[in-house]
Simulated assay, not measured.
Amino acid sequence: MEKVKCCGVLWVEGLREACCLHRVVILCLRSKNLLMRTGQCFLLNGFIFLGSIFVLNSVVIPALWWILPDQCSQLVSHKLCALGGTLKFYSFLRLALIQLFYGLWFYPLYVFSIVLSTLWYNDIAKYGYAAMGRSKFTVDKVSSQNNTPIMQNAIQAKRPSGLEGVMIGIGEQVYSILLLSVFFLEVYATGFIPFIGKVLNFLLLSWMYAYYCFEYKWNFNEVALDRRLDYFQSYWPFFAGFGSPCVLAIFFFSPLVSYGIMAILFPLFVLTATGSEADQEISFERSKWRPAGVERLPIFYVSNNVSMWILSLLPLEKQDRTQDRKAQ
């Protein structure tokens, strides 16, 4: 019961951190670039993308059903109804026009939105991090109050300098992309499990979006990948709570509508994570990370093993060193 209580407290804390959307307003007021990028994201994904879906469902499709009806009583000339293939032809024509609308507008807009929004998310996180540095949320304030000079030197020395440090950073990025891609496939597969599939899918999606939200901040803080994953899997109830509002907003909609809503909400949660101080002890000693009563949950166990297996098939040099660094 003590462990359950501790997990519940961390989950509620994560949910509370995700709902602190006032940080978005504060950070946007401090940075015009951030306000502009956030507004562009809302304009593209909210007004244009979701607006197009609304126009399709409210105007285009009803108009096609009026022009190309599926019942004889709705036809202008009843002679057309005598022709056996008329209604079938109308049905085929309606479907073809709708698919043409999707092929010429929605799918290109969907791809364009993904590419452009991904670039904008990075800008939003960068401008938000800079605005946070000028505000009272700054990470340096917390770090200076809690880290001793010895600990600060240890944090700064966590990655080698020079070419070796650059290569390690590139390797971490490649591994991170592969790990999260495999984890996404794992999330997708859980949706087909009977009975408990939806629950597992919701939980894994919450973790995935929470990790994405905090990853921008951890990249700017240059937190090593192994420390991120260890911290994330140690405080798994907190991140499950943080990601749950984001998933709840899209869980009951169609895929296209869900994407549009997510594309609008995701920058807000990224800024909320950027302004959060709940994860500051990620830079502290490992012994201080562990929350009392909560066991480390190997969330990325399957994706880690699959990723390492994929990397083992590649002719990479110094593979043993990479495996030792990435293995959890």
Rank of each mutant, 00 (worst) to 15 (best):
D140A: 08
S77V: 05
S287W: 06
Y216D: 05
N304R: 06
S312H: 14
L256T: 00
G133Y: 07
K3Q: 07
Y129R: 00
F238Q: 03
S77W: 09
K32Q: 11
T322S: 07
F251M: 12
L265D: 04
E317W: 15
K217C: 10
M167F: 14
V187K: 14
T148P: 03
G260H: 00
Q74T: 04
I124Q: 09
Y212I: 08
Y301D: 06
I26P: 01
S58F: 03
L256G: 01
S176H: 10
L179G: 02
S143P: 00
N201E: 07
G165A: 06
V55I: 15
G162L: 09
S144T: 08
I61G: 13
Y301G: 06
E277R: 11
V60W: 04
R296W: 01
P108G: 04
Y110C: 01
L163G: 01
L205M: 13
Q145P: 01
G260C: 07
Y301P: 01
F242A: 13
I26W: 13
F214W: 12
L178W: 03
I98D: 02
V115I: 15
T272H: 03
T86N: 04
Y102T: 02
Y231K: 05
V174H: 00
D324H: 15
G162Y: 10
P160T: 05
I299V: 15
S206N: 07
I124M: 09
V199M: 07
W105N: 09
S181T: 09
E281P: 03
S276D: 08
L314Y: 05
E295S: 11
T38R: 07
L95C: 10
C81E: 11
K126D: 09
L80K: 10
S234H: 01
L297Q: 08
Q280K: 13
L75A: 12
G84S: 10
F89E: 02
R159S: 11
Y102A: 05
I282C: 12
L97R: 03
L43E: 11
A249E: 03
L87I: 15
E13D: 15
V4C: 10
A157K: 14
Q323F: 15
S143L: 10
Y129M: 00
E317K: 15
S312L: 09
F269D: 02
S143N: 11
A278H: 06
G133A: 09
K79V: 11
C19E: 04
Q40A: 05
